[in-house]
Amino acid sequence: MRLSTAFYDRVQARLSARLQEARLDGLIVSAPGDVAYLTGFFYAVNERPVYVWFGADGRRVALVPELDAEYALAQGVHADVRTYFEYPGVRTPEWHLADALNAARARARIGFSASLTVAGLARLQDAFPDAVFERSGVVGDLRLRKEPEEIGLHREAAAICDDMLGAGRALIESAISEGRLLPTEGEVARHVVGYGTDRMYTDYSHVVYTTKLAGGLVYAGPNSARPHGLPSSRRIEAGDTLILSLGAAVASRFVESERTFVIGEPTAEQRMYFDVARRAQNVGTAAMQVGRTCASVNAESLDVIRGAGCGQFIRHRLGHGIGIGQHEAPWLEDGDDTVLASGMILSSEPGVYVPGHAGYRISDTVLVTDDGPQRLTRYPRSIEENVIAL
């Protein structure tokens, strides 16, 4: 699950060029995803900050808590590792960073990402009193298009995520065949997350992540009309519409694979809503072409739902970017005019949510290429293939 030195060399070279274009003397990153993307350091996130300095002169310094120093070195972090003992400390981590750079009073133009907290920025300004701090989106811009090695990791995660869907379905089918009570939403969620996590530790000798290895939202019947509702103790029932909304990450390169199932023979109403969601997803996925804007792709997909007379049941956009973060730019939404480019990875997940009845969502992780969109997740998506027979 380790990326090569060549990967980090390319990424850091691209960053250096962007810093020079922006006339910044350096950049400070602190978000775990940015730190991992730029240096290969994955760590347990807590109150102790990690800062990475990228100087326009080529200097790379990673300031980490002392208790993480050995782990950082073991990961082969692509920066000069410096440490501070504890947080908040007699001397703050930000002052330790200034000491490491010998630049506490340098008149420098320093970029920082929008993920830096207000308190963190204030502490950095105290430690670098003569510097000018400017918000910069340079790292986010770099992360929009994935390197070939990253795409390979996304493909591996997609295969695991599809298998998680199969594991959730198998749990329900085993209960049916053995005449047991059907599982609760929470039991299915625990099962699929455990399956995905176990696969990671079976398939890879060294597992790293920024937030999680596998995740699952499971909702059935009326609960499925709440797009981000958490799994409950409600037991799945015959006739339910069931959404398995699952995610997995290899080396923190995420995918999403979500499917809508029906427990038993679908009603005409279930077939109608399912068909609307599936058509919207097919249209949205096909529209993910190089040169299209996120806004136009989103509108084309959601117009399918509106055209079917279901506009009042739209609760969210078509999708979002996926990378080292499960949700990241660009956003497939009316307000994002980002132009799609080869190497972007996006979710395609329009939904139809009918209060008191059910929700219907099919989601794939899609790679934008010069030859058109490629679905990385491949689990069957038709209603015939996703009926769980009683």
Rank of each mutant, 00 (worst) to 15 (best):
G168N: 08
G325S: 13
Q289M: 11
R105N: 15
S296I: 00
C310K: 15
A106K: 15
G58M: 13
P129R: 13
E256H: 14
L142Y: 05
L73D: 05
G58H: 10
Y204Q: 07
G372V: 08
A98K: 09
L332G: 07
A56I: 02
V52Q: 03
M272C: 03
D203G: 00
A295M: 07
L73S: 09
V90K: 15
A79W: 01
I383T: 00
P129G: 09
I322D: 05
E384K: 08
N102K: 13
L171A: 09
S232D: 08
L244D: 06
A98M: 11
G152I: 00
A358C: 13
F54L: 00
R23N: 11
N298G: 08
S115V: 01
T285K: 06
A214M: 06
V366L: 05
R109I: 10
R199L: 08
A114V: 13
Y379D: 03
G264C: 12
T5E: 03
R259Q: 09
V290K: 09
D130V: 13
R145S: 01
Y209R: 07
R234N: 12
A114C: 05
R82M: 09
A248W: 00
R180Q: 14
H320L: 05
A114Q: 15
S252F: 01
H191K: 11
L116M: 15
P373I: 02
E187F: 05
P227K: 11
A159E: 15
T369G: 03
D68N: 14
L124D: 06
R91M: 15
E384I: 04
Y71V: 07
A286F: 09
Y219W: 12
G247R: 10
A13M: 11
R381M: 14
A98G: 14
R190S: 12
Y195L: 06
P380N: 06
R235C: 00
G323F: 00
D57L: 08
A358N: 11
R91E: 15
V90P: 11
Y8P: 00
S245A: 15
L182F: 04
G311N: 06
G194Y: 05
D364P: 08
V368H: 01
A13L: 10
P355R: 04
G229W: 08
A214E: 04
F261K: 01
A31S: 12
Y8A: 00
P355M: 06
A238S: 13
F85S: 11
D334M: 03
W53S: 01
R317W: 09
R317F: 06
S205I: 03
A6V: 04
V304E: 15
T338N: 05
A249K: 01
G152F: 05
H191N: 10
N386Q: 06
F261E: 03
V250A: 06
P148I: 00
V290C: 10
